[in-house]
């Protein structure tokens, strides 16, 4: 299962072509969430889909070299900490927890900064958790040899 690399050239070529556009679409959904449908959750899933496609087609080992397991796990924590950290920063700036108004001199700009940072944290956590889920499922039941 681990190193079963797809023999079909169509799959590998198409997934190589699609990899970058999927990630760019994910980033678009992430940062355009203020203006249209989208946001951290959806963007995280879309970015994760690109990496999952890669490890599905080229094998888990190659996927692991692309996103090492430990870095993935650290990023999982960084996402949640980024979200919670925005709250802590707003406490330090004499506001309430997750009160973005104080993040900038202009409350509206502060809200912008806060929302973008928070959505980034959500996106990071969701993407890395999805990749971690896929890796756990795909590598489950492997014989340790």
């Amino acid at each position: 299962m681990r190193d079963k690399i797809s023999s079909s050239p169509v799959l590998s070529v198409v997934s190589k072509i699609l990899f970058a556009p999927i990630i760019i679409f994910g980033l678009y959904v992430q940062f355009h969430g203020d203006y249209g449908p989208g946001g951290g959750f959806q963007a995280g899933v879309i970015v994760a889909a690109a990496f999952i496609l890669y490890s599905m087609i080229f094998g888990l080992s190659k996927g692991e070299t692309l996103v090492p397991i430990m870095i993935n796990r650290y990023l999982m924590c960084v996402g949640v900490l980024l979200y919670a950290g925005v709250g802590i920063v707003s406490i330090l700036l004499d506001g309430m927890y997750l009160d973005y108004n104080v993040l900038s001199s202009d409350p509206s700009t502060g809200q912008h900064i806060g929302i973008i940072l928070v959505e980034l944290g959500v996106g990071m956590t969701v993407a890395t958790v999805m990749i971690a889920l896929y890796h756990s499922f795909a590598s489950f039941g492997e014989i340790n040899e």
């Binding site: 969430g33 946001g39 973005y100 509206s108 809200q111």
Partner: peptide, 16 residues
């Protein structure tokens, strides 16, 4: 907020 998508406002700010 000057952010057109109300869903984002509610999700990230009102319901942070």
């Amino acid at each position: 907020f000057h952010i057109p998508n109300v869903v984002t406002n509610i999700l990230a700010s009102y319901r942070g």
